[in-house]
Nucleic acid binder design. Structure first.
Lengths: 201, 201
DNA sequence: ACTGCAACTTGCACTCACTGCAAGAATAAT
DNA sequence: ATTATTCTTGCAGTGAGTGCAAGTTGCAGT
């Protein structure tokens, strides 16, 4: 996995280290004192950086606590989905795609777990987490437009996007309920099963 | 309907008028200039109020643009759901409950429509809108706990809550796609149908 | 090693959202 | 009429987030 391989480039390595240091400091301080009683100044100085630099790494304080970053979908998974695959059944392929997003989502599983825990005590973080899903769904909806050419569907993009977002969050919650066994993607099938169960009540 | 009945109380009437004036001003200015180029000071002075008073009415600028308010569920609908009804099938009853929320959601349909339109140009508002759904879902999850006693379900509260949120948003989007015919609740069955269609692909 | 280049950090000054508080005005209750 | 309540507002403050320009540091080509 690419996350355990430190980049040979000195610049990139430092960037990565500083990023992790900021997340670590943010999570620790917020865990101790609460989201509103920790300033960006404190977080950045705990990480040995200036407040101004903090905002070169994250758009907001909340983003740092969650360790939010841009995630890029695996090119192969992407191409396959656009072509109408891999199975040809939309719901199944959507599951594959969501799995693709989830695996690339979090390079550091410990920080991901701490982020999930902090969401329990700080509801604002949940909202930010969901908002971040929105960005992913934005990319997904582009793919849907392309896939439509290969394999049209009577379901509109909005619904598909919302279901994808629901599955991401449901997987994360199932992961938390399990006591953080394995990673979030391992609980995706469970999330799908729950959804089907409800719909077929 | 209670929304068209102005309260006899002078205080309450003024409160209502000022609230609507703030939403109206916020929506107009943001529509003209964009969310980040309008200040709270401008909105409140356009409504003839002080900036400080603005924050007595709304928690944030975004909330004013969306016209967000507390919504209370009809007591009868609530009691029926908790008792395990009205149909006894969870998904069906959930639909009834969501309909109950949607009908009480927006006292002013024109402002609701303008809010939906502004969400297209201002993605941040979408996030806030979804965040507001979260609060409703919070109340819903309390009801689920009680309903469980009368009628247990193998589906966990989180999934049910997320589906309820999805249905609210999907209804709103279907309403928008229809060119704002009727109200949002009229498009709830369509939203459910789309969801089922996807799951049964 | 020298040099020019690009990326990164930082300080500075600034805007503005949002809050607590306390005083004053308007309204309701008695 | 007077007392109590509720609402508005000004004031002073905190802190998030941004643009800019100057400095610093690693990188590439020669």
């Amino acid at each position: 996995m690419p996350s355990s391989t430190p980049p040979p480039n000195a610049r990139a390595r430092q960037k990565r280290e500083r990023r992790l240091a900021l997340i670590e400091a943010a999570q620790r301080l917020v865990g101790e004192r609460g989201l509103d009683d920790v300033t960006v100044e404190e977080i950045s100085s705990a990480a040995g950086l200036s407040p101004r630099t903090f905002f070169n790494y994250f758009d907001s304080k909340d983003d740092a606590v969650l360790g939010i970053q841009e995630i890029e979908l695996d090119a192969e998974v992407r191409a396959q989905f656009v072509a109408g695959g891999p199975s040809g059944r939309l719901m199944t392929d959507l599951e594959t795609l969501v799995a693709g997003f989830l695996t690339n989502a979090d390079p550091n599983i410990e920080q991901g777990e701490r982020a999930m825990r902090l969401m329990v005590s700080e509801p604002r973080l949940v909202q930010r987490h969901i908002a971040w899903h929105q960005r992913v769904i934005g990319e997904l909806e582009e793919l849907l437009g392309e896939r439509r050419k290969a394999r049209p569907s009577p379901v509109d993009d909005d619904t598909i996007g919302m279901v994808a977002g629901l599955l991401m969050r449901a997987s994360a919650l199932a992961w938390a309920r399990s006591g953080y066994e394995g990673d979030a993607v391992a609980h995706l099938p469970e999330a799908v099963a729950q959804l089907r169960l409800l719909l077929d009540d």
